[in-house]
C-alpha cells in the first residue's frame, strides 16, 4: 500500500482526493473519491498508540497534510469522539482506530491526516 507522506501529490487532483480513503487497519471506507479537499498546516495530533502510564499527558506528533471536509455527513463511515477543548477526534467507524484526524467545532470543518489513512 502506498505511503502518502512520501508521494502525496499523486493523490490530489484539482485539490481533491483521487482515490477512496480507507482505514489502515480494517479497510472501512472513510471518504469516497473527490469528496475531500487537500490542505496543509501544522497540528499536534495525539498518537494512535499511547502508553497506559501517561493517560493524563497523551503524546502527540506534528501532522501537516490533511483532507478537509466541510459537512460531516460527507463521510462514508467515521466516529466522532467526545469533545476535548474545541475539538472532537475522528476514528474509524468500524474498528475505532484513531485519531485519524480531528473536527474543529467552531468552524465545523473536519480534517483527516493523510499519514493515518490509506488511499486505494
Amino acid at each position: 500500500m502506498p505511503n502518502c507522506s512520501e508521494n502525496y501529490e499523486s493523490e490530489i487532483s484539482d485539490g481533491k482526493n483521487i482515490r477512496s480513503i480507507t482505514c489502515k487497519f480494517c479497510n472501512s471506507v472513510i471518504l469516497t473519491p473527490t469528496s475531500a479537499s487537500f490542505t496543509s498546516f501544522e497540528f499536534q495530533l495525539p498518537l494512535m498508540r499511547q502508553s497506559k502510564t501517561n493517560e493524563q499527558n497523551p503524546e502527540s506528533e506534528a501532522v501537516s497534510l490533511f483532507w478537509s471536509v466541510g459537512d460531516m455527513f460527507t463521510f462514508q463511515n467515521v466516529g466522532f469522539s467526545n469533545t476535548v477543548g474545541n475539538n472532537k477526534y475522528l476514528t474509524c467507524a468500524d474498528c475505532e482506530a484513531g485519531p485519524i484526524g480531528y473536527h474543529d467545532i467552531p468552524s465545523k470543518i473536519s480534517y483527516v491526516a493523510l499519514t493515518r489513512v490509506l488511499h486505494c
Binding site: 494512535m48 498508540r49 497523551p58 463521510f75 466516529g79 466522532f80 469522539s81 476514528t91 485519531p99
Partner: peptide
C-alpha cells in the same frame, strides 16, 4: 463502540470515548 480485544483498547480514543458515529 465495538469490543476490540486488540491493541486499540489502550488508545487515546478509548480513554475519551465516542460521542457518535456516522455510517452509510
Amino acid at each position: 463502540f465495538r469490543f476490540s480485544d486488540d491493541a486499540f483498547t489502550t488508545t487515546f480514543i478509548s480513554t475519551i470515548g465516542i460521542d457518535f458515529k456516522i455510517k452509510t
